[in-house]
Amino acid sequence: MVRFTLDDQEIVVPEGITVLEAARRSGIFIPTLCDDSRLEPFGGCRLCVVQVQGIPRLVTACTTPVAEGMRVQSTNEEIERRRRTIVELILSDHPNDCMVCEKAGDCNLQELAYFYDLRTNRFYGQRSQRLVKDQNPFIERDMEKCILCGKCVRACYDIQGVGAIDFTSRGFTAKIAPPFEKDLDCEFCGQCVSVCPTGALMSKQSLGKGRQKDVQEVDTICPYCGCGCNLTLHVSRNEVVRVTSRPDTINEGWLCVKGRFGYSFINSPDRLKTPLIKKDGKFAEATWEETFDYVATRLGAIKSKHGPDAIGGLSSARCSNEENYLFQKFMRAAIGTNNVDHCARL
């Protein structure tokens, strides 16, 4: 454990953690746009600058490990003035179209602009020309809103192990892009969308379906596979409009393409809601009683004519453990066969 002073408050934290993390744990707010405790520190946005006694320059809290006896000032007039300049600089290269932005109300940059009361901006001038119309199916990339915090790059490379995007170009024209600035062509896990602090990366399916303040959040478990990732469904007007996951869950907020984007079946008109029985070559809707009777009769007939091993059962990974247990019990005890399997191989 390391003992250090943060804003005149003595704090004891485990060795090796950063000043920013220590501040978080102590409930002291330090603004940041590029830090995520699940990702490697980056030190790019420079908003978390703090004063450390004995160091003439300001240092970033996200990259500075806590050291024994360190004295850190997280806020004062100078620090806040410099942070304010940084937010001003970001906004001077930003569309500032919060009125129509999908992310409004859930945007870290917007929050900071509010926090620093940036009604006017001392800086203006050329804006980065980064507008990308990307034809990929899932991720809306409005790169004019990108602040180059690099969180998407780190999530893609370090978490997903894919490396579909990276920094490219230099100076004011620097940007984040897929190879050769082509359309994004990856596994579309959407980790990048989940970490983006602005409206640069959004889910295409969610566009125009309701901002964060209008949705109701419902926590659940992903039904797709046995991993059991935690999901948060964002429901608006009785429709799931977005799926996210909380960072403090077993899956640390990371999801795959199915969990994050595979929810359109919920309200699909093609979705089966009642059993169908084929009559005269055509499927017709049936009641559950009808269906159980029909299945029991047919299975009984097959079993008595061909024996139990003529029957096989295949269940679904999307059923719960209990349901799968009952299913194999049914196959073994009621039917009398070991021909039972399940689609766990996604």
Binding site: L89, D93, Q126, A174
Partner: peptide, 18 residues
């Protein structure tokens, strides 16, 4: 310097441009 900034940090990337 505006052209040679790596683009990683905001004060350098945007600040030198301004």
């Amino acid at each position: 310097t505006k052209s040679e900034s790596c683009g990683k940090c905001i004060p350098c990337r945007v600040g030198t441009m301004r």
